[in-house]
Design a protein around this nucleic acid. Structure first.
Lengths: 327, 327
DNA sequence: ATCCTTTATAGATATTTATCTATATGGGGG
DNA sequence: CCCCCATATAGATAAATATCTATAAAGGAT
């Protein structure tokens, strides 16, 4: 049997003929003319190298080889119908896989979105990468992930961004600190205190430092710690003060107070970043849609800042071009 | 996904590419040029409507959709490989189905061939039809079977024949009959006896009657019985004499004797008859081959008359033309 | 940066496919 | 014996397929 010139269409026609028992009838069902069907069948028969049908009292009945071909055809066509379903699920974002890279601080809120999404789409497999801003930038350059979360996007030449959450940086002190009761504090008053800082390369530190520079201030004593968690605990236990994302504080934080420093909080926003040059997986796109629609149910209202619809709209515009050129 | 323009060839190429991880390598293996493979892949990708492969550190790795397509392709190609095996078995006569129509008398010997054949090819399903000559002729006209066994073939315009077994008709009498001890008997001496005859339309009766006519003889009293079995028992129990196929007698037949009538036995031969206008199923052809090769092991040497090789040679000649025109 | 390998695109062509209309052929039922 | 339905063949054509060679572009490794 010569499999080379076997098309799925041919099998469809054949199945239709076996089902209806006559070529003319099959032709009508397939919206083809009878000679067309006749030819197709002849081709198929030649490809197989055996007669497939024989006329018995006006009906076309499959021969031995024909019956087996019919079985094979149905299985094969069925398999590709399944594949079609699979594709549909993939396209609907109900299935598939994507990876997302977060800067450290975002890990305090992203689970609020990822959790409900997994609930809604259990077939979608998500890989989360967490690290500081510098590490995330490297991943971004290497195009290792579908989605990225930054406060300040890297060059937008190759990417598009959409804000979704406020990320205010606040100054914190241990409960009982001398400044804790004050109604208004100037940053300069804090410079004498030891400040706990994240490592260079952290987004929080970067933001804080550039804000200080704007204010023309310089830090006194500092202590570097590699995680927000460590800093929070450090502050609570009197190691020093710090400026960090409000999201890092638990809902209840009896041992820590936020200082009403003039000029704070430093406002920043987390945003989803999507590379322009990498095709976004359906699953990732599905997640963005999910986030756009359910963000308000997943985070506290005061942090809401949902500009994802805009991002989705822009993505939808660019997509078609990519579709054709892609691989 | 547009299944219309999906060919098996395309899937083969795709599978080769996924396996080797590069298009160039796949092209070499398939004895194609690299641009060819590139184009094919592009077409496939368009048919599916999704990118299938992405380049990761120099290797082409399937995307989510690509992996599923790979799975589907392998299953589908595998299914058709199986179909190919099935066809091969069919062609080799190892599998399939055929039907054979026998005149009554032949049922005493045909099982000797059919049995061993079934032993050798258990996957071949055989339908046997048995009746008298007239019934078999009707089946033959209607092309209801693959093979027929006659002593005297019908018009050979639409058929080919090959002898395979002597079918001598002998005169029999009950043991102890007055003529039983004689060394030579003339047929005319038997005409006074009552003769047991098969029904009109039976081959045995037809042969016997035409022989009588040649000899210018006419029967006296007759008694008609519908089966060879009945006649044999009838003769044994003294109902009369008969002329019947030697094959009808069991190996040991203590209550019946064969009379040495001058001019007997009437020589005839059984032959396999194959219609020219109906394509012979592989299974039937396989049986003829089997018969040609194993006849001598299956029947007593004195009945042997194997001219099947000639039939097979003639069939092999005609076949090719049919092959093309056959549906 | 530069070279090598891999992939993609362009341009070309013979073949095949998919499909039609018109017509011939053939087998059963009255 | 003729008519009707089904099937097959012929002839035609636009589209697509399968392939090639030559060349450009892209991505990694040195």
């Amino acid at each position: 049997m010569n499999i080379r010139h076997l098309t799925f269409r041919l099998l469809q026609v054949y199945v239709a003929v076996v089902r209806s028992g006559t070529m003319s009838e099959a032709a009508r069902r397939l919206h083809l003319t009878q000679p067309t069907v006749s030819m197709q069948l002849k081709r198929l028969s030649e490809a197989v190298g055996e007669p497939l049908l024989e006329s018995r009292q006006g009906r076309l009945l499959p021969t031995e080889a024909g019956s087996e071909l019919y079985r094979a055809s149905r299985e094969v066509l069925g398999r590709f119908d399944d594949f079609d379903d699979y594709l549909a699920a993939l396209r609907g974002g109900e299935r598939g896989r994507f990876s997302i890279a977060l800067v450290n601080t975002a890990q305090y809120v992203l689970p609020r979105l990822l959790g409900p999404h997994s609930q809604a789409f259990p077939e979608v497999e998500i890989t989360v990468h967490i690290g500081n801003r510098r590490q995330m930038l490297t991943r971004f350059e290497r195009q290792e992930d579908d989605l990225y979360v930054f406060s300040h996007p890297p060059s937008l030449a190759h990417a598009q961004a959409g804000r979704f959450l406020r990320n205010p940086l606040v100054a914190v002190a241990p409960r009982g600190h001398p400044l804790a009761g004050r109604e208004r504090i100037d940053m300069s008053e804090l410079l004498g205190e030891r400040m706990l800082l994240r490592e260079p390369g952290s987004a929080t530190r970067m933001l804080f430092e550039s804000w200080l520079q704007e204010q023309g201030l310089t830090l006194g004593a500092t202590l570097q710690m590699a995680s927000n968690e460590a800093i929070r605990v450090g502050v609570a236990s009197g190691l020093g003060l710090a400026v960090l994302s409000e999201h890092v504080l638990p809902a209840e934080h009896p041992d820590i107070v936020i200082l009403p420093v003039t000029g704070l909080p430093i406002e920043s926003h987390w945003q989803f970043i999507v590379r322009r040059d990498r095709r976004l997986s359906h699953a990732a796109l599905g997640f963005l849609h999910f986030a756009a629609g359910h963000l308000d149910e997943c985070v506290e209202p005061r942090f809401l800042s949902n500009e994802l619809e805009g991002l989705l709209a822009r993505l939808a515009e660019v997509r078609p071009e990519l579709d054709d050129s892609a691989n």
